[in-house]
């Protein structure tokens, strides 16, 4: 089980950067959360205004007492967040969720990200660099303008292969095509839209490659109490512990909460159909 060490912290918005139409990069001074952030963890942001529930956003970078968020204007809360002036105080809850785990033996790994699914990988890349383990990164999106964060990741000195559905950047095709064209990876990390993750899990499971994915669902509480964010997982797997099973129950799967039992799951544990 992950260690749930988290804080409710008043963070200060220290930078606000326009990335591409609809995409933003915000820096927040949040010493307690930034200092403990791990790859694939997220913060739940209390957006000022008439919003009843916090907005979950992945932690993109974390350096010293500052963390950053990379997000798209999806709807009302992200639109509001994109318009807050530098200096605004924001209540953050975090870091929430479990983390990607890094292997103890030094075998290389492959990261597969779709669009904003790149978010958990800056922290993971840093961990790999610290451990001196090789990492290859594949990032895909529908088109070039949706490939955000790639340059920041490249600045870490990491080689990144990109692909787009329309060929406007990198190889034309999707991340799974790119993965197929390469030697079989020892370990895969994935994050992105559900269709991509599902295809990635099949790819990894068919080839018996260990694969960790960070999942997303619509969250209510972000705390594990509303049961709004569940996914079906293999019965008895680590993350299934969140949902108590009835003894007489013959179901072949359990439910896990993405917000607290995840967001990271093993590809072999996620059941896409129920």
């Amino acid at each position: 089980m992950p260690a749930h060490q988290q804080s409710l912290e008043d963070a200060t918005l220290v930078s606000r950067e326009f990335i591409a139409p609809g995409f933003w990069h915000l820096g927040l001074r949040s010493p307690h959360i930034a200092g403990r952030a791990g790859a694939a963890q997220y913060v739940a942001v209390d957006i000022p205004g008439d919003f009843a529930v916090r907005l979950p956003l992945g932690i993109w970078t974390a350096d010293g007492d500052t963390l950053s968020l990379l997000f798209r204007e999806w709807g009302t809360r992200t639109e509001r967040l994109a318009r807050l002036p530098v200096g605004t105080t924001l209540s953050l809850l975090g870091p929430l969720g479990n983390r990607f785990t890094t292997p103890t033996s030094a075998k290389g790994a492959t990261i597969v990200a779709g669009g904003l699914g790149i978010v958990p990988f800056w922290l993971l890349a840093k961990e790999y660099q610290r451990a001196g383990i090789a990492l290859e990164v594949i990032v895909g999106a529908r088109s070039k303008d949706l490939l955000v964060g790639v340059d920041t990741l490249r600045e870490l000195g990491i080689t990144i292969a990109t692909c787009t559905d329309d060929g406007s950047d990198g190889t034309q095709g999707n991340v799974i095509d790119l993965l197929r064209a390469r030697p079989k990876p020892d370990l895969i990390y994935g994050c992105g839209p559900p269709a991509m993750l599902r295809a990635l899990c099949s790819f990894a499971n068919e080839r018996h490659v260990p694969c960790q994915i960070s999942m997303e669902e619509t969250f209510g509480c972000s705390l594990g109490t509303c049961w709004g964010c569940v996914v079906p997982v293999r019965r008895g797997c680590d993350q299934a512990t969140g949902y108590p099973r009835a003894p007489a129950d013959s179901r072949a799967y359990d439910l896990a909460r993405v917000c607290i039992d995840g967001t990271v799951f093993q590809a072999a544990d996620v059941l896409w159909q129920r």
């Binding site: 009843a52 009302t76 619509t218 049961w227 569940v230 179901r251 129920r274």
Partner: peptide, 10 residues
């Protein structure tokens, strides 16, 4: 098991 997803919406 409850209802199918999505089952919350802000």
């Amino acid at each position: 098991l409850g209802n199918a997803m999505p089952r919350v919406a802000p």
